[in-house]
Amino acid sequence: MQDLANIFIKSIFIDNMVFAYFLGMCSYLAISKTVKTGLGMGAAVIFVLGITVPINYLLENYILQEGALKWLNPDFESVDLSFLSFIMFIAVIASMVQLVEMLVEKFLPSLYSSLGIFLPLIAVNCAILGGSLFMQERAYNDIVEATVFGLGSGVGFFLAIVGIAAIREKIRYSNVPPALRGLGITYIITGLMGIAFMSFMGIKL
């Protein structure tokens, strides 16, 4: 149990998707103009990461890894399909996003209208593929750990995007140098937020 809490806290604060690895930057910059859209995007990312990371974990451990096909037939022990992992992961992500979009549209129309345009965008959000690739690199012990890692990374992204959206809403009233307006100042603020987040690095878990 404590391990799970560790993974959760670590993936939110220390290995924050946005501030430590710059994943999901494109949507982070494009969709953080107001807090409302930021909330929608953040929620959608938590949702999709929480689903795709465990699925890709299963895929990785029962199909792709070297010797993972043993359960099918002992002869396959030497088969190593890990070079296919990129294409498999992205296929899972793209189809899951499509599926989730259809389900949400059918059963939760109010959520759909608020997430609406963000769901398809998520298929090409690097934070999602990044989540799966980090899961592969760090080799978690079981599916529960992988799920917790996925959810934690999503929450980290959520915090980052809501935070920057709130700052951008306020900064509209201040006098930014013209050449720095918009994109430039957003980069610099994100950098400063990143420095603040670095202080979590000292925490030993």
């Binding site: 501030f19 140098p177 050449a179 720095l180 307006r181 957003t186 950098g191 990143g194």
Partner: peptide, 28 residues
């Protein structure tokens, strides 16, 4: 070397580029 400085470096690059090329400045 720390990650946040990459953002700030790009931010400064953008600042320099837009100060030089004024048609890129964003509207308020």
């Amino acid at each position: 070397i720390l990650p946040p400085m990459a953002l700030i470096t790009v931010g400064i690059l953008i600042w320099w580029q837009r100060a030089r090329n004024e048609k890129l400045i964003e509207e308020k």
